[in-house]
Design a protein around this nucleic acid. Structure first.
Length: 235
DNA sequence: TAACACCTGTTC
DNA sequence: GAACAGGTGTTA
């Protein structure tokens, strides 16, 4: 990393406290966080809802910073300015607040569900339980598993918990294969939208017929977030 | 654990 | 004018 141009004054304190250049050892993801491992310290980013990292130098009202590397630049854009980026010396705090990865081994999941009475949909969104499931995929996963999002986590049977584990893997793998879900803002690093919005089963389909049984999809609020489900297919 | 706060844009 | 939006951190 050879330089950073900070365009949003709100990022000053978080990004300017490191002397450049620094070597990037590798870039990885943990939950919804993007981690640049540097020869000393880390650059940790979270794109929240409308954040984007686009290759090249894009200057516009949404541009918050431009990261420069030897031979490449990354523009950090964010329409709602809720995304975060900061240099830190260590990232143990991140590991401490995130549950296991959703695409890893999930054999622990049935046991963990028994320890919570929260609605299963709210449980899935809590990054401390499992890291990386957002509001779209929580609804989608529960539809595929055939589970009512309002059910207390600890009311799921062993068999339902196993179905849920499989649904998590299936939905997230499919979504990744289609390069993500774009309603309005999400873009990949080339600026291209994802394609999974074409395949969503329940999310944002309130009133439309269930793709499996034809019953109108319902929208309710759980944990303050819009939640979509089929009252017939999900019990 | 729920409500609110953080932001700004879109849609009704 | 109000409601809604893919997320998370703080507060009550």
């Amino acid at each position: 990393m050879t330089g950073i141009e900070i365009l949003d004054p709100g990022l000053e304190g978080l990004l300017s406290r490191v002397e450049l250049p620094r070597r990037v050892i590798r870039i990885r993801r943990r939950g919804k966080y993007i981690i640049f491992e540097l020869d000393r310290g880390f650059l940790v980013m979270h794109l929240r809802i409308t954040g984007r990292l686009i290759l090249g130098e894009l200057r516009g009202p949404e541009t918050r910073a431009i990261l420069r590397f030897r031979g490449a630049s990354l523009s950090f854009l964010d329409r709602r300015r809720m995304a975060t980026a900061e240099f830190v010396e260590d990232i143990s705090w991140l590991e401490a607040k995130l549950g296991p990865e959703p695409l890893g081994d999930l054999s622990w999941l049935p046991g963990a569900l028994k320890r919570s009475r929260r609605p299963i949909k709210v449980w899935l969104l809590d990054q401390k339980n499992i890291a990386g499931i957002g509001n779209i995929y929580a609804s989608e996963v529960l539809f595929v598993a055939g589970i009512d999002p309002r059910r207390p986590a600890n009311s799921l049977s062993e068999e339902e918990a196993v179905r849920l584990s499989r649904a998590i893997r299936e939905v997230l793998s499919e979504a990744i294969a289609h390069r993500g879900t774009t309603f309005s803002d999400y873009r990949d690093s080339s600026g291209d939208p994802g394609g999974y919005q074409e395949f969503l089963r329940v999310y944002c389909r309130a009133g439309k017929p269930c793709k499996r049984c034809g019953t109108p999809i319902e929208r309710i609020e759980l944990g303050g977030r819009g939640t979509f489900f089929c009252p017939r297919c999900q019990r």
